[in-house]
């Protein structure tokens, strides 16, 4: 079952190492309970070969992609997975509902929903890892459209290639926002050896100013 890691929930809420009050702790537990009933996780992934060109571009499925970040991430990979997952529209409904009566609850649903989507990504990641292990491959860190210099416009290709609306109920607005909001698309590279790609917060230019970044506990 999909879980919301409490530490992650607190991090998304902007707590930096300090302890929440008893009321907040209870609210978080209660929201997680409600979310567990409301979410309907769904995902889809497909495996494609990847071709690297000398000009720093790549071909994946029927796409020709230019992105230094993704290139660095995938260098050395023999295959790449395109993945999409969502915890479903229930979380958005709970947020909308909470906004009527309690913004603090809305914020907690928001944070806990994100933590659950993250957990689902990790599980999908793990499923793919086990598949690739049999082939002697290891996985590279997830890399999503909009991350670094990877164009957000690729969301349209994810929609098309993975048939996301039918396979897992994710749709896209004209402005490339995914609905349900707690949805994630990503490339995951598979290679015989680990690359030198940085991971998580280390790979992000905004790290220093970001209130969500992982840091040493105070």
């Amino acid at each position: 079952m999909i879980k919301a890691d409490r530490k992650e929930v607190l991090r998304y809420l902007g707590y930096r190492g300090s302890q929440p009050s008893a009321e907040m702790t209870e609210m978080i537990s209660d929201c997680i309970r409600q979310l567990e009933e409301a979410i309907v996780p769904a995902f889809v992934y497909r495996r494609f070969p990847v071709v690297f060109h000398d000009d720093g571009t790549m071909d994946i499925a029927d796409m020709h992609i230019r992105s230094e970040g993704l290139f660095r991430n995938l260098k050395g990979c023999s295959a790449v997975y395109m993945t999409a997952c969502t915890i479903g529209p229930g979380c958005d409904r709970l947020i909308r509902r909470a906004e009527v009566t309690s913004m603090s609850r809305a914020a907690v649903f928001q944070a806990a929903g994100s933590a659950m989507a993250e957990d689902l990504c990790d599980r999908v990641n793990e499923e793919i890892r086990i598949r690739e292990e049999k082939e002697g491959n290891v996985l590279r860190p997830r890399f999503s459209p909009g991350y670094g210099d990877l164009p957000l416009e690729l969301q349209r290709d994810f929609m098309r290639i993975l048939n996301m609306s039918k396979e897992c109920g994710i749709t896209l607005t004209d402005t490339l926002l995914m609905i349900p909001s707690k949805s994630v698309t990503a490339f995951i590279g598979a290679a015989a050896c680990q690359g030198d790609a940085q991971q998580g917060c280390d790979a992000c230019a905004e790290r220093a100013d970001c209130i969500y970044s992982y840091r040493e506990e105070l």
Partner: peptide, 10 residues
Amino acid sequence: FLPQLLMSAD
């Protein structure tokens, strides 16, 4: 933090 601000706002 934000959650406390919001709880007070509520």
